[in-house]
Amino acid sequence: MSSHADAHGHGEGGHASVGFYWAIGGILAVLTALEVAAYYMELGAVEVPLLLGLSLAKFVIVVMFFMHLKFDSKLFTGVFLAGMVLAIFMVSALMLLYHVVPGLGVGA
């Protein structure tokens, strides 16, 4: 049985090297350090967007490289994003409904 094909997935172009994984791990560690630093520096208005940006970067890096989505079939990305996009939509919509819309001053 061509279980070999299974093992290495299909359409996974180049297999990343061990050194590459260590580098990714290092970047993730640095980004986390930056997050915590941003938290302690109390940057005011830019803090929240900065924190969200940093965590988004970590998220994307893990998904693309550790979970191989960058090298794998687009279909995997598709079924993942179907849920992910709706989840982001739901969180945003509820945040808007609870924390933004009532503050606009025209609510009942």
């Binding site: 079924v79 179907a82 992910m84 989840a87 982001i88």
Partner: peptide, 21 residues
């Protein structure tokens, strides 16, 4: 040409996004 188990698992992860969402 994709492995079904892997495809199904990615689908399940998509579903889990909503759970934690």
């Amino acid at each position: 040409g994709l492995n079904s188990w892997k495809l199904g698992f990615w689908t399940l992860i998509g579903s889990e996004c909503l759970f934690f969402g």
